[in-house]
Design a protein around this nucleic acid. Structure first.
Lengths: 274, 274
DNA sequence: TTGCTCCTCACGTCACGTGAGGTGGC
DNA sequence: TTGCTCCTCACGTCACGTGAGGTGGC
């Protein structure tokens, strides 16, 4: 007969752990002094505690362990559960590896600039969206070529949306699609979100953007003349973290009402879904 | 001005998350309707939220993020913290890898026997211990050779402990040391724990066992004639999980009062500390 | 007016760690 | 008798998820 402290020391656990297992009914003392509440353990409890600790070290929860020990789980089920434990651990290893790479990128940024980065990259899901769009093409990126294009497209687009009796359902969006080779012109799209149950208009092309499971996103503040810094940041981040761009990017004009210097634009880059 | 739901959707977080960050003072809405409590956000809050999310994805806690964002932390400190985040992640990867291997060993055991294992292996720390000991040597392991040795050593040992005026401070222990090559005799030691401040006796050798940071432990129930199964289990486990035995093993006679069939013995194998 | 959104509590998560405050055992 | 051990609450951990119960906005 050992009291709680001696039994805990023997097994290499804390007294609190024994209390906890007692509460859960996972490991009851051989007897409890009815007057003082003192728990008494015998060596017969030790193999059970060993089993609990061994299963705990595999990553099982205490309630799962309870089920296993009390034989409420078949060997088949246990085997399956052990396999799933391995899968979960593998997933966590993958997540931790990616985390290390992201931290590395952040450190590299810190080394280069020695101050907090102007662009923070966030990975998120993009909802499916229905857009009314107008298209154009250009030979080169850059504000001097894209600026005039969108200054022409967007007023035109909003006028047609209005004539079609449609309501913009969110901020305007620009889309850029990857081109197969550098000699192909770049396809640019000006879009405005509309409700999915809005009627079509013969003046407007409807473009249904499917959900994008993973996209890199960052916020650009100020004139579009300097948005290239945001794209550089997002592309450098993608390269450093090994995220592969997947098809196309978007600009969402979150707040572009006043002076260009006060504009707020979200830059999004679709990534491989993993 | 967006209300909580719209801002949350925009950023890809839950409304609850915005509430939480508001409570912490991490991200306050641009304004709160004093009458209704409605939170209103502007696009100016978005870069801050992006920074929070980016840092959160690196593994920083929200309170750490608070310190970083509010510039209470130098670039030097941040860099050091990022390095420590990587070290922590690397450690978790190591732990998860070992877990996968331990689970694999458990699955292998399940395949072989199709029932819960008779021996559960637990890794634990062994405290430093002072033993009064008697030594002997033998050419072979096995109950038929070791049994008679210990049946001679232990009564002799206890008699000398008694004559020396010492009190046994715990269950008897047997030690087995690795031999350099198979032709060397096996050194066996019978020991009984004594208090560290007990006086020495000229009839007894004192052996101070240092702390063992990592040892594999399992419980054997029944006669020592069948203890070999326990050793096989512990050695198989060590092999399967890649744990390297480190020097010596112990038998702790936890409860060896009555019939040999009711005996309870702990088998311990020192492991490389990592 | 009816859904839809928002609000504020407040509990739950998981396996204990860590006091606080009090009593029993040698 | 004095430390030492044990006991029972009960809160804290971390970042929210998930109702409950109630009100505002279009």
């Amino acid at each position: 007969m050992l009291n709680a402290g001696a039994f805990a020391r023997l097994a290499g656990v804390s007294v609190r752990t024994l209390h906890h297992y007692d509460e859960l009914g996972l490991l009851k003392p051989a007897e409890v002094d009815t007057r003082t509440g003192y728990r008494r353990y015998t060596m017969l409890e030790l193999p059970r505690l060993h089993r609990i600790l061994a299963l705990r070290d595999l990553g099982l929860s205490l309630s799962e362990i309870q089920g296993i020990i009390d034989d409420e789980i078949s060997v088949e089920e246990l085997r399956a559960r052990l396999r799933s434990l391995q899968a979960e651990a593998t997933e966590r290893i993958g997540a931790e590896s990616e985390r290390i790479i992201r931290v590395e990128a952040r450190i590299a940024q810190l080394e280069a600039e020695n101050e907090p980065p102007p662009y923070d990259i966030v990975v998120k899901r993009l909802e499916a969206k229905r857009l009314a769009v107008l298209r154009d093409a250009t030979d080169a990126f850059g504000h001097e070529t894209l600026g005039p294009i969108f200054e022409r497209l967007f007023p035109n687009l909003y006028a047609r949306v209005d004539r079609g009796g449609l309501q913009p359902a969110g901020p305007a969006v620009a889309l850029y699609f990857d081109r197969p080779d550098p000699n192909t012109p770049i396809e640019v799209v000006a879009g405005v979100p509309i409700d999915t149950d809005d009627p079509p208009s013969h003046e407007l092309e409807i473009l249904d953007l499917p959900e994008v499971p993973r996209a890199a996103s960052t916020i650009h503040r100020g004139s579009m003349g300097r948005v290239v810094a945001g794209y550089e940041a997002i592309l450098r981040w993608a390269e450093q973290t090994g995220a592969r761009p997947d098809g196309y990017g978007r600009e969402v004009y979150l707040d572009c009402d006043g002076e260009p210097e006060t504009w707020i634009t979200e830059l999004q880059l679709a990534l491989d879904p993993r």
